[in-house]
Amino acid sequence: MAKPRVKVPGKAKAGDVILIKTLISHKMETGRRKNKKTGELIPRKIINSFVAKFNGKEVFRAKMHPGISANPYLAFHVKVPASGEFEFTWTEDTGKTWSAKKKIAVG
């Protein structure tokens, strides 16, 4: 069960470059692992996409491959011109998505 966790500063000054940290619990099954009992390959199932939007506009995106560790952690920066809301979306190979929202007050 994936659970997103996001850390965004509550407030900032206009034009500040802020640090955003995100973490989601996910096994990130590589598709290369074998079931120890049956010897069969365990099918790949990873979160392959992460998108960060600020006030509806994309500011950062990551395309992930099986080379990313389980429970993918992402930290990145965003320049905030004004108050608004961040929306973060994670998408799994299966098409399943998770999202989180965070507001920031800029003044």
Partner: peptide, 15 residues
């Protein structure tokens, strides 16, 4: 990682 001018800094961390 795909950045935009709104990223402010071309810097990212993961594992």
């Amino acid at each position: 990682f795909f950045f935009t001018p709104a990223s402010g800094k071309a810097k990212a961390t993961s594992r």
